[in-house]
């Protein structure tokens, strides 16, 4: 069973604001899912390499040339909640 403290820690790492009630709910649900995932303990993987991707392509290269960004930057800025002088505005850290 995953502890309440672990749930709090994970929520903070994930930057998810959860209420106390939600913490309790996630503690129960995540424990149940993790119990199911425990099944994997039965598999011997000692000699097995991990697979991160199904296709075997790697290091896709392109010419080192600057390209014009195709999307109008004003369209992207319009989507931001807060901007100032053409920059994204961020709240203070402290």
């Amino acid at each position: 069973m995953i502890t309440r403290k672990e749930v709090q820690h994970i929520a903070k790492l994930a930057r998810l604001g959860l209420t106390e009630k939600e913490m309790g709910k996630f503690q129960k649900e995540l424990s149940k899912i993790l119990d199911y995932i425990e099944k994997l303990k039965k598999v011997n993987v000692s000699e097995v390499e991990p697979t991160s991707h199904s296709t075997k392509i790697e290091n896709v290269m392109r010419a080192d040339k600057s390209l014009k960004f195709k999307v109008q930057s004003s369209k992207l800025m319009e989507l931001a909640p807060e901007t100032k002088n053409g920059y994204l505005k961020v709240k203070s850290i402290f």
């Binding site: 930057r15 998810l16 604001g17 931001a80 909640p81 807060e82 709240k91 203070s92 850290i93 402290f94």
Partner: peptide, 26 residues
């Protein structure tokens, strides 16, 4: 910050950056 639902509103300075993350995502 970049796009999507946000609790950050212009002219309010009550929230810190962490508050914006936690509340917007939560």
């Amino acid at each position: 910050i970049k796009f999507g639902y946000s609790v950050a509103k212009p002219q309010t300075n009550t929230d810190t950056l962490l508050d914006v993350y936690l509340k917007s995502r939560g």
